[in-house]
């Protein structure tokens, strides 16, 4: 059984456990091209595990995973590399390489893809794309610095630059605002918004903050004015983004729906993420 061509990410009854802990339990969902999903859930509810299964970093115990329509459940690590080249990820703990400069960190996925494609590295072009990605997150001046010299918020932004530098069609953000002050957190979300509305990549964002999901669902980046503005909803609005919300609870996906449905939910746990 294979997923339809427009499906970018699809889970079928996926379960994962670590020792005795069930990190994911019977999770099923599907994301089409251009879709945006916001994943809420308490600490330890399996959000990071969900993203890692999608990336092939954690193998499911049972169930099936499809990425870009291909069944990747039993893929070898080498075949995964080709799939992962089309995915961008921002890790919860940052995952920046301490021993490399910011420029080298951001160039890393680009150089790796060139090596695996057997192309000689066109250094000038890589440098330009790295600068472009860092300009996007407004950190062009930090090229030669090391991650340890940057603040937490800046490191998150470098992580975003590294995730988007290959222009992947699927982007996964793991708790991009965790541990940041509200102002920096909003800057980060605005970057994610901007990336979404400029390239229309399929995106999944894990977060604890209601505010993050609210921004992503109700605001958009206007490329003409360069500003973030509220989406005006009318019955057949053209630029309506298909933002949906997931809520995870102890490894299970307990809610899936729009923001209105989230607000209307009667479940006490789900309610906690509705405002």
């Amino acid at each position: 059984m294979s997923a339809p061509a427009s499906s970018v990410l699809r889970f079928e009854n996926v379960s994962v456990s670590f020792g005795g802990v069930k990190a994911l339990e019977g999770v099923s969902f599907e994301m089409d091209a251009g879709a945006v999903r916001i994943v809420y859930g308490a600490a330890g509810s399996g959000k990071t595990t969900l993203l890692k299964v999608a990336l092939g970093l954690v193998c499911p115990d049972s169930g099936n995973v499809f990425v870009f329509g291909e069944n990747v459940t039993h893929l070898s690590e080498n075949d995964w590399f080709k799939i992962r080249a089309k995915m961008g990820i921002l890790f919860q703990e940052g995952g920046l390489f301490d021993s490399m400069t910011i420029a080298e960190n951001v160039a890393y996925p680009l150089l790796n893809q060139q090596v695996s494609a057997g192309r000689a590295s066109e250094n000038g072009q890589v440098g330009e794309r790295v600068r472009e990605a860092l300009r996007f997150v407004e950190l062009e001046s930090t090229l030669e610095k090391f991650p340890s010299e940057l603040s937490g918020g800046m490191r998150r932004r470098v992580g975003i630059a590294r995730a988007i530098v290959t222009e992947p069609p699927l982007l996964l953000y793991d708790s991009p605002t965790a541990g940041l002050d509200p102002i920096t957190a909003n800057t980060i979300i605005n970057l994610i918004l901007k990336e979404r509305d400029l390239r229309h990549a399929t995106s999944m964002m894990v977060t604890h903050r209601f505010q993050d999901g609210h921004l992503l669902a109700n605001f958009r980046y206007n490329p003409d004015s360069g500003q973030i503005e509220r989406v005006v909803r009318n019955s057949n609005g053209g630029s309506q983004v298909t933002t949906k919300f997931f809520v995870m609870h102890e490894g299970r996906l307990v809610f899936e729906g729009t923001q209105q449905e989230l607000k209307a939910s009667r479940d006490a746990y789900v309610q906690k993420f509705a405002k």
Binding site: K52, L55, G56, L57, E77, F81, R84, A85, M87, I89, F91, Q92, E93, G94, G95, L96, F97, D98, Y108, P109, N112, Q113, S116, R162
Partner: peptide
């Protein structure tokens, strides 16, 4: 170990290195 807990090893795999 520090690379593991700061997800640098996961990042390596995600970005195409064994």
């Amino acid at each position: 170990g520090s690379m593991k807990v700061t997800e640098q090893i996961d990042a390596m795999r995600a970005l195409g290195t064994d």
